[in-house]
């Protein structure tokens, strides 16, 4: 991963929130995350990457952010299942859109949803994980990208 590639993900996540949430997410300074201290919030959508690149991309969000986003989208179903669904769809959309930049061989998995502050997210060994902090309205989320 280089700075240019990191900028691609920043642009994609801003576009997602601008389109689906009416205003772009404010992006904090990206940083290199420690493997055992990566951010994990209430709901996390994890996408495995294979093909031309290997690794994973995940978006982790507070429940309040997802609730506000669902409200903005006109959803009336605020079930646990719909929070999880939205967490997965955010990660899926950002990862899928990345193929415009990384090419057709940038293969993405279906999203895996992790609830709560789990340690079940398996990051690639020996690969740096970049954390992009996000603030949308007054709520927090983070995009984590770890690609060989």
């Amino acid at each position: 991963m280089d700075e240019e590639q990191l900028r691609i993900f920043v642009g994609l996540v801003q576009f997602y929130f601008e389109h689906e949430g009416g205003e772009a997410a404010a992006v904090g300074s990206p940083f290199l995350g420690e493997p055992d201290a990566l951010p994990v919030m209430d709901y996390t959508g994890v996408i495995g990457i294979s093909g031309s690149r290997r690794g994973c991309v995940y978006v982790t969000s507070s429940r309040k952010l997802l609730q506000a986003l669902l409200e903005f989208m006109g959803e009336t179903d605020f079930s646990e299942a719909n929070y999880a669904d939205l967490a997965g769809e955010i990660a899926n959309t950002i990862s899928g859109n990345a193929r415009q930049h990384f090419g057709h061989e940038f293969m993405i998995s279906v999203p895996v949803i992790v609830h709560g502050h789990s340690t079940d997210i398996r990051m690639p060994n020996q690969v740096k994980a970049y954390v992009i902090p996000l603030h949308w309205r007054k709520f927090e989320a983070a995009l984590v990208v770890s690609l060989e």
């Binding site: 899926n92 959309t93 950002i94 990862s95 899928g96 859109n97 193929r99 415009q100 090419g103 057709h104 993405i108």
Partner: peptide, 9 residues
Amino acid sequence: VSALTDKAT
């Protein structure tokens, strides 16, 4: 209707 928005897809 897909998130895979590259031209090849």
